Amino acid sequence: MNIVDLGLIGYAEAEAVQMQTLKSVTTEEQENTVYLLEHPRVITLGRQGGAENLHVDEQFLQSQSIDLVKTNRGGNITCHFPGQLVAYPIWRVEKRPGGMKKFFHDMEEAVIQTCAHFGVATRRRPGHPGVWVDEARKICSMGIGVKRWVTYHGLALNVGRDVSLFNMITLCGIQGATPTSLSAESGHDIAMKEAKHVFADEFRKAFADSALASSKTA
């Protein structure tokens, strides 16, 4: 697999990179690729909508230089900002055992183990994709798109303490859900560079079976 750090990049620019890579991965001209990055402040709506869970109007968002984007990923409303680690796996899932369910499980596992590295115990919450500290506190959101058995979009893990942008939305459209972060839960500030390094290692471990699965079914 190829893991690429795009740094801080605008949402539209990152989406263009994803779509170009999607074509190459689909035709197998390029290996499975994971982009690690941060976005400037943006609120995104998923295929299931989410506008009803936005607490401010578009004029206010414009005055604060916050973009509002309708996307083709799954899920409801969420937001991105500096201090949040975003991972976009452009990944062939057709030959992976377990299909999409296992793909989500492995993405969650990479996040759970990343959090564990920093001393933060997390869990899955049945019926709600992503990673949670408890029933209310969500530390990582997930939503993907799939074309011809290749994924795009992905996950967003809150690393820095400032998660105030979530105040403008109902997190993922889930009543009672509140955002938290690695830094808040661990009790010390965690550098994005370190979080990316640990996550990349844990992602490699969680998805190590992909090459084996491909060779067995080729």
Rank of each mutant, 00 (worst) to 15 (best):
A200K: 05
A177T: 12
V159C: 00
E58D: 12
T78Y: 04
Q84Y: 04
G7I: 02
S141F: 06
T114I: 10
R124C: 10
N158L: 08
K205C: 06
L182C: 12
A184Q: 14
Q113K: 15
I77D: 01
W91T: 12
V133S: 13
Q62D: 11
E29Q: 15
D201N: 14
Q18C: 12
Q18Y: 06
G99P: 06
I90L: 05
T33R: 13
I144N: 05
V146D: 06
I43Q: 12
S215Q: 13
L45A: 12
T151P: 09
E38I: 02
A16W: 01
G173R: 02
R47T: 03
N72F: 09
S186G: 07
N158M: 08
H105P: 01
V111S: 01
T217L: 12
T122H: 13
A14H: 02
V111W: 01
F199R: 00
L61V: 10
G46A: 06
T78F: 04
G130H: 10
G143P: 05
D134W: 07
N2T: 10
I112K: 14
A184S: 14
L37H: 00
T178A: 14
A121H: 14
A208Y: 06
T78C: 07
L54E: 09
G154F: 00
F81M: 10
G119N: 07
R204T: 14
A213I: 02
H80Y: 04
R47M: 07
G143I: 07
S210E: 10
E52T: 13
I190D: 05
Q64M: 13
N158G: 07
S65G: 05
G50K: 04
E58P: 06
Y152A: 06
K70P: 00
T27C: 09
T44A: 12
I139Q: 06
A116V: 05
I144Q: 04
G145Y: 03
K138T: 09
K102Q: 12
G74V: 03
V42W: 08
R148Q: 14
R124I: 10
A211H: 09
L6C: 03
D201M: 13
F166V: 05
G173C: 03
H197M: 06
V150L: 12
A16M: 11
N32T: 09
L155W: 01
L6S: 00
H39Y: 08
V150A: 12
Q113D: 13
T71W: 04
P126E: 14
I90R: 00
G83I: 03
Y11A: 08
Q48N: 15
G83D: 03
R47V: 01
F104H: 02
G75N: 10
I174W: 07
H188E: 09
P97E: 10
R204Y: 04
G10I: 10
G10R: 11
H153P: 03
